[in-house]
Write a protein that binds this DNA or RNA. Structure first.
Lengths: 247, 247
DNA sequence: CGCTTACTTGAGTCTGGTCAAACGGGGTGG
DNA sequence: CCACCCCGTTTGACCAGACTCAAGTAAGCG
């Protein structure tokens, strides 16, 4: 289910090739190499960590996709955010490591693991990386703000259109796109739990978007047919994306 | 509407007296004193900054309360989070200063202003404070996670009970409480916009909580009568609160 | 005293939820 | 190779929680 794999050295990190990530200095690269304690590979559907557990690692997604979520006692689930390559996982817990949400893989995932207890070294000796960390946290917060706006104030069809547009956009930035096909294997249940809707209503509303010719739904995933229409219905608009830091 | 006031020197900062904030070293205190560019006082109902504007300051709330929010074109508003003393405002924008949400005061507020452009000095020379900044961002993200869970998955009465319990708790930590009276002057419209509900439905559901004897609603604010009942209905539970950093 | 802001209340509607059942493809064990 | 099962998806019928519209009250203020 979860196992260590032979690590990709940071200097060959495949994410660096993507244009929208900020470059590291040689020194930073060396530090990250030391900071990284290993790689973790988990299967689709498995849990990286659970709410209320203690997690002493931070992770950066190298490959694959997953999601953060919280649950109520009776099983109602809210997906908080999708995780894609370059995203940092685990910062949202208390910095000491007590997690207040769970993380599950949608596809098989590879993650770089970092030792939380060495975080202070990062802050002490690499202020550039420390700054990046805050940048990352702040970006994550903006994403959550958007989601909250959707779930709180948009109608069902707007929410669905919005999230499909947003996920498409994010996926493209990290290479999780093949043509118009978004390579994030979510089910309609995932969609529903992200948007605060029921599965049935999600299905029926999604069917409308399909009829409108905005998207095509595939088994576990989708294809954007008319990105403009999707954005218009969902009220989604691109942000100015400056190269972003990671790790 | 907004004006500079004679600044309270950081070493006399009234927030430091509150037990749940972390203490500064002498050195950090000196740095903060220099980092702080002044104080801002704004009236209840006025806007600190608006979505899409550029804001070159970071602020810490010294006194009073307000809220962050986003709006859709047609005026639907979603309140993202309430702001209380000790909270940092403005970090959620891109670090460069483009804001993606607005901030409005609910009571008159006093804020300490910091110059964003000097943030790099903070990272370079005061890794402890840099670490704090990430801590603060991560705490904020946990708050948003909770809110998203509420808005997405709780029923109207659960949402209201939850937020009232949570706000009571937060308010008490920063001295915004007099007896059982929560000194955060929100209207039912604020509540509705926080929870993704209509004003009318919020009013009717709140009336139930009043009938149950859980709270008493006051003009712009409320009083907790039965905190246990409120927490039970809303599914709210206290977190272990370690002394938290600020500024 | 009249205006505004916040809160109430009632009536009727509708978006979205629940329950129930069925379909279709992929995998598996007999 | 086929029967069966499971998971994700689809559809229909019905229900209800939450919304809109419309008034009306009450307190605060110039």
């Amino acid at each position: 289910m979860a196992r260590r794999t032979n690590a990709v050295p940071c200097e060959l990190c495949p994410l660096r090739k993507l244009s929208n990530f900020r470059a590291f200095s040689r020194e930073e690269l060396l530090f990250m190499k030391a900071f990284k304690t290993g790689e973790l590979r988990i299967d689709a559907g498995s849990t990286l960590f659970a709410e209320k557990s203690i997690n002493l690692n931070l992770y950066t997604v190298l490959e694959g996709s997953g999601f953060r979520y919280k649950m109520l006692e009776d099983g109602r689930r809210q997906i908080l955010n999708f995780l894609m390559p370059g995203d940092l996982v685990g910062l949202q817990g208390t910095l000491s490591g007590a997690m207040e949400h769970s993380v599950e893989a949608m596809s098989s995932m590879t993650l770089c693991a970092f030792d939380r207890s060495r975080l202070n070294t990062l802050y002490r000796d690499h202020s550039g990386l420390a700054y990046d960390l805050t940048w990352i946290a702040s970006r994550e917060e903006r994403l959550l703000d958007e989601n909250l706006l959707s779930v709180g104030r948009r109608t069902a069809i707007e929410r669905i259109a919005y999230i499909l547009a947003a996920v498409h956009h994010r996926a493209r930035q990290v290479g999780l796109i093949a043509g118009s096909h978004v390579n994030v294997p979510m089910t309609q249940q995932h969609l529903a739990d992200t948007l605060g809707l029921s599965l049935v209503h999600t299905n029926k509303t999604l069917a409308k978007l399909v009829r409108y010719g905005a998207v095509r739904w595939l088994d576990r995933g989708y294809e954007t047919i008319d990105a403009g229409l999707l954005a218009r219905i969902g009220g989604w608009r691109p942000h100015s994306e400056t190269p972003r830091p990671f790790l």
